[in-house]
């Protein structure tokens, strides 16, 4: 298990955050995803096998952009 912090660009409303959460949780291996509109950040708990690229893609699918992963 690992914990990743995503810095996300383009969120401006509450449904944005829940869209991203929904999209991230669909990635197989992601256990928990919580996105904060206020901090423009998402915290993802996932299996080690989940790649950063997969997460970036999931965020992009919902219409937003990951600028950095910590």
């Amino acid at each position: 298990m690992k914990k990743l912090k995503l810095i996300i660009e383009g969120m401006h409303c509450a449904s944005c955050a829940s869209n991203i959460e929904r999209s991230l949780k669909k990635v197989s291996g992601v256990k928990e995803a919580s996105v904060s509109l206020m901090l423009k950040k998402g915290i993802v708990e996932a299996e080690d096998s989940v790649s950063e690229d997969e997460l970036k893609k999931a965020v992009a699918k919902a219409g937003y952009k990951v600028t950095r992963i910590e």
């Binding site: 869209n19 929904r22 919902a62």
Partner: peptide
């Protein structure tokens, strides 16, 4: 875009 991808938001 949201209407097509089913990721609706307030936009």
């Amino acid at each position: 875009r949201g209407l097509f991808t089913f990721y609706f938001n307030m936009d």
